[in-house]
């Protein structure tokens, strides 16, 4: 087994891992970096539970060979917001019932985050399409859409609070 030094920027931190060259990004994240938020939900890259952002683009970490993503910037569900804080997307899912058993949730959070990062006010159809690589067995997707809508509202509220003049 050839081990290779894999250098990744994960959730804002530079990480160097010695791992077999063919090791999947998902396994590197879970086993070598103890970031167990990303999940393995299937065996053929069809469920979306393992989604992470690679240079801002949502991708499936279960088909990404880690050493092929040298020097890339990876954001996992753990890195969506700084420790102790919640991103509006996380708030939305926490409050509006977007997570039931929770197994698919990290993937949905990542796909939602990527959507709202470049389209802060999507239509329901755009939300459906953006989430159509992610399977959920529990919710019937309805409360997931509610969660995304709430996330949009929360993000707008935060924006408004930031720009509002102090004391008003």
């Amino acid at each position: 087994m050839t081990k290779e030094l894999i250098r990744l920027k994960v959730n804002g931190e530079l990480r160097e891992i010695a791992a077999p060259a063919e090791k999947l990004l998902l396994d590197v994240l879970r086993e070598d970096l103890s970031l167990t938020g990303s999940k393995r939900g299937c065996d053929d890259s069809s469920c979306g539970c393992c989604a992470v952002l690679v240079d801002g683009v949502p991708m499936l970490s279960c088909v990404a060979i880690a050493s092929c993503y040298q020097d890339c910037e990876i954001v996992t569900v753990e890195g969506i917001a700084p420790p102790g804080e919640l991103d509006p997307v996380q708030e939305g899912y926490a409050v509006a019932g977007g997570a039931q058993c929770g197994y698919c949730t990290p993937g949905f959070l990542i796909a939602t985050k990527a959507l709202l990062d470049h389209n802060p006010n999507p239509t329901l159809e755009e939300i459906r399409l953006a989430l159509s690589s992610n399977l959920c067995r529990c919710t019937g997707y309805m409360q997931i859409y509610e969660s995304v809508k709430l996330a949009i509202e929360r993000a707008q509220a935060r924006e408004a609070a930031k720009t509002a003049p102090v004391g008003s």
């Binding site: 890259s45 979306g48 989604a51 683009v57 949502p58 991708m59 499936l60 088909v63 990404a64 796909a111 399409l129 953006a130 159509s132 690589s133 992610n134």
Partner: peptide, 9 residues
Amino acid sequence: IAGPLQRNM
């Protein structure tokens, strides 16, 4: 083809 995440890759 597949879904949006597979199409990104």
